[in-house]
Design a protein around this nucleic acid. Sequence first.
DNA 1: TTGCATGATATTGTCGACAATTTAAATTGA
DNA 2: TCAATTTAAATTGTCGACAATATCATGCAA
Lengths: 225, 225
Amino acid sequence: MQSPTWRDPVTAADRVLLQIQQAIVEGQIAPGSKISEPELAKKYDLSRAPLREALARLERCHLIERTPNAGARVVKLSVAGLLSLYELRETLEGLACRLAAQHMTDDEIAQVQQLLDQHLSTQRVREGESYYQEAGDVDFHYRVILGSKNPYLINLLCDELYFLVRMYRVQLGMNGPRVSRAFDEHKAIINAIANRDGELADLLMRRHIGASRRNIEQHFKQQGN
Amino acid sequence: MQSPTWRDPVTAADRVLLQIQQAIVEGQIAPGSKISEPELAKKYDLSRAPLREALARLERCHLIERTPNAGARVVKLSVAGLLSLYELRETLEGLACRLAAQHMTDDEIAQVQQLLDQHLSTQRVREGESYYQEAGDVDFHYRVILGSKNPYLINLLCDELYFLVRMYRVQLGMNGPRVSRAFDEHKAIINAIANRDGELADLLMRRHIGASRRNIEQHFKQQGN
DNA sequence: TTGCATGATATTGTCGACAATTTAAATTGA
DNA sequence: TCAATTTAAATTGTCGACAATATCATGCAA
């Protein structure tokens, strides 16, 4: 899926950003490990200038943390961090729904409904294909977020928080048991938006994400991390 | 006021960032105008490397917009943009209040209450000192945001959105008529937090910021910008 | 005159090297 | 042996120059 918010990588910094992003999200570069500029520059065969540009953007989406004169480290995953992230998402995507109910065109809404029907049919083939499920889930949330028409909100969710959410999902294996219910919840949300009931859409989305959050909370009960 | 979220500028990029930030916020570099790297490098007497680092961070807080191979421009202010920004703030600071009611210590709450009393007494001296008023307002909001203890939320509001809000305030002269009411509203909010009533604090903060937003909406009714 | 192609100019992106700072190792003293 | 201090190595921050791209001016054709 190509996002409407990403540009295709025209510059060397763009390309190496995508590679490192993927490497971090998938855990090929271990959480907490130090980022060595000379090492990565050699590995990806470019100079440190575009690499540092990429690092600046990685910091922007919270995948690394930099300290002056000391370099960058990949973020460490923690339950507390994950919960903080979901706290934010809950509220932000709720807002996105409320705004989407105001600003989405009937056409855009119809497209999302059609999208969900497609997901339903392809899912009916057989469940357990959690990859497609994830893609579909991401796609739905993206559409709603874009539907909010609020540029700051869109940038925030799609560019800054998205990769971190993905990193947690991939590395902590959060494709949980809430696979079948998600479709119904998505359906209910888009229906509320179609009825221009922003308040309800907001509530349903917060409940939708909140359920995931509580799911995680329970899963990690009394465990260090 | 020095924010707990900012580090003191140890590097050349840090220093020039602060200077350009201020220049943009105060309009010394006109909105919409192009950023010339060679020009600025000469003006601030450093090479383009730290300057580009600074530009990357300026993009992060939405003060400039960059396009590949074409350079950076200072953001243009628009009523639509301002409203989008306030939409976000309304929800985010509401969330901050809800979380602050959960996570602030009694001590921290007492400090904020004490802070408000100080503001009240210094304001009683005479009104119209909107600069101190603004500083006090910022200070209050900061404390609550930090009280949320959510690192993503804190980073978002204090580092990414703060300067843009400030830029709008300074350049559109938004130190409006809502000076005296603000104190009472602040007081009500911190009281709700003190009572651990997160829901009420959330509501009051949203109303507090929403009032400003509607104030702006009305002020710019049927005007292009 | 208008629109498009061509070339000159300026700007951004990238590179390799040096300076400043941090980190690790080695040395000294108790 | 251990702690503190000094020295050495490695890493980050900064610089100036070159390459790639875009912008603007000029000229040409319709």
